[in-house]
Computed example of a mutant assay.
Amino acid sequence: MKKYIIIICLLIGLALTSAKACDVCGCSLGGNYFGILPQYNKNFIGLRWSQAKFYAHMNHNSEYLNEEYSHDTYSKVELWGRFYVGKKLQVMAFVPYGYNNMDGTEQKVSNSGLGDVTLLANYMILNTGDDDQKMLKHTWMVGGGVKLPTGENDFQDNGVLVNRNFQLGTGSTDFLLSSVYTVRYNKIGFNAETGYKINTRNSDDYLFGNQFHASGQFFYWQNVKSVALLPNAGLYYESAERHQDGEVLQANTGGSAMLLTAGLETYVKRISVGVNYKYPLSQKFNSDDVASIESKQRWMLSVTYNF
Rank of each mutant, 00 (worst) to 15 (best):
E193G: 10
G81A: 13
L207K: 08
M124I: 07
I188A: 05
C27T: 14
F54C: 15
Y64D: 01
G216F: 06
Y237F: 06
F54K: 15
L16W: 05
N223V: 08
F54Q: 15
L29N: 08
L29I: 03
Q107F: 09
Y99D: 00
G81T: 07
Q250Y: 00
Y237K: 13
F166V: 13
A52Q: 14
F83W: 09
V162P: 04
W299T: 07
G46Y: 07
P149W: 00
D131C: 11
R242D: 07
W299Y: 07
D245Q: 08
K134R: 14
K284R: 14
K76T: 14
S112L: 14
N61A: 06
N158D: 09
S295G: 11
G263N: 07
N66D: 13
N59Q: 15
Y181W: 07
A291D: 08
S110K: 14
Q167S: 05
N199E: 07
E67L: 07
T304G: 02
G143D: 15
N210M: 05
G254S: 09
P280Q: 05
I36D: 02
V183P: 02
D130N: 11
N101Y: 00
D205M: 14
N127I: 04
S110P: 02
P280M: 10
N101L: 00
S62K: 06
Y279V: 13
F190I: 10
G274M: 02
M58A: 14
K2R: 12
V109H: 09
T128G: 01
K197N: 11
T182I: 08
I271S: 01
W49N: 15
E68C: 13
M92N: 08
A257I: 15
N286A: 12
V180K: 03
Y84K: 08
K197D: 05
A121D: 02
N101K: 01
A56S: 15
Q283P: 06
V117L: 07
K87H: 12
G274P: 05
A228C: 07
M1I: 13
S62R: 03
F219C: 05
I12C: 04
G263K: 08
S110W: 04
V24G: 15
A228V: 13
I198Q: 10
Q250F: 02
F307V: 02
D204G: 08
F83G: 06
C27K: 03
S75F: 04
I12P: 00
V227W: 01
L177E: 06
I6C: 12
L177T: 14
Y74H: 05
K187R: 10
L47H: 04
V224G: 11
T173Y: 13
L301G: 02
Q107P: 13
